[in-house]
Design a protein around this nucleic acid. Structure first.
Lengths: 192, 192
DNA sequence: CCCAAATGAGACATGAATGTCTCACTCGGG
DNA sequence: CCCGAGTGAGACATTCATGTCTCATTTGGG
């Protein structure tokens, strides 16, 4: 059995391991370290050499999710154009990481302790600021708090990821269905 | 004697146990049977006498959640009035069970196996039918599928429950913030 | 009063997952 | 060619939740 090395020696790519772990844990959040190792195509021993334990693995996944969120936030350029356009760009940029984020979102183990990763608060702030900007510009309604709009966006993205993963929705509709419901709601409009 | 009388002794109320378990597991989904027992104010032995094991407990919680959902669906009278009004009534009726449902929603253990409870499918159908009715009456937009609207409603209710539980939102706003975002979206409207 | 039902407390075994370790093998570079 | 880093396989001990059991106690009914 040989692994396709990609330049150096046959060292395991931690990134690839995390991707595989995320893909598996998103489907089966109770997967054991052994299952994770098999999913990543490595042995349990090697998995342990890279991540001290299950907790460390989940923490690494959390860090990866935060990093991808921040990358998406940067790529979406939330300060440019209308807030609506920014929301649309954000959802589109987040889509590749939606599965991982949906897993982390349901992993409330991460939020029950005292030491939850401060990265989430920063992300919350940036998204809240976007909604607040939309409210100040008169674009968004003001009877819904930025905190709620942010939380709701998380929920809709998780639901969207779940819908796609279960096969009840097409991946290509991910951005559209989330953005349209988030901004426009379910009611039919006559105007525009 | 020897008949199944239940007013006899200081028998534990299984309903109360389930409520306590739901309240705890919503906050800490990894709570042990011992913690659940303590939260319910009974011993682990008694907890085990009523629910064969952790799996049975979660199944019972699932059955309770399904029952409460169906009760809410009945109480909301989805066939009466406009679809919007029905959605509003539904969210209001579901609110007391929102915490439990949020827990079940994130307990993807329930949906990964082959034998997921058929009760969810029935609930999905009833809610989907409501959105479809709204679309046929011209009340709801038709570019979002009933399946997505249903899933989105779940996600928003879970997010709403989480927001309230974390203290970042008031319980009294639960119905309003969910219904308004679900139906009207975040965009500000000039009309009405 | 006496008994049966139900509970609480705790001991005990079991099983699964985890964490640690050793050893042999395979590359790749010097 | 040889050496070492990195890996796979597996043995091993440990931890912890779980499941089962016993026994004392409480409670309420007959």
């Amino acid at each position: 059995m040989s692994h396709l090395g990609y330049g150096r020696l046959m060292a395991v790519d931690p990134e690839h391991v995390l991707r595989a772990a995320a893909a598996l844990l998103t489907r089966k959040s109770t997967a054991t370290m052994d299952e994770v190792a098999k999913a990543a195509g490595i042995s349990r021993a090697t998995l342990h050499r890279h991540f001290a334990g299950r907790d460390a693995l989940v923490r690494a996944l959390e860090a990866l999710g935060i990093a991808e969120c921040e990358a998406a936030l940067d790529a979406a350029r939330l300060d440019e154009g209308t807030a609506s356009e920014a929301v649309r760009r954000l959802v589109g940029a987040v889509e590749p990481a939606a599965g991982l984020l949906a897993f982390l979102y349901t992993e409330n183990q991460l939020f029950e302790g005292e030491e939850q990763n401060a990265g989430w608060a920063l992300i919350d702030d940036r998204i809240s600021a976007l909604f607040r900007r939309g409210q100040l510009s008169g674009e968004f309604r003001i009877d819904l708090t930025p905190a709620w709009l942010t939380e709701a966006l998380y929920g809709l993205m998780a639901s969207g990821a779940w819908l796609v993963q279960s096969g009840k929705g097409a991946p290509k509709d991910f951005q559209h269905m989330i953005v349209e419901l988030m901004l426009g709601g379910a009611l039919r409009r006559e105007e525009s």
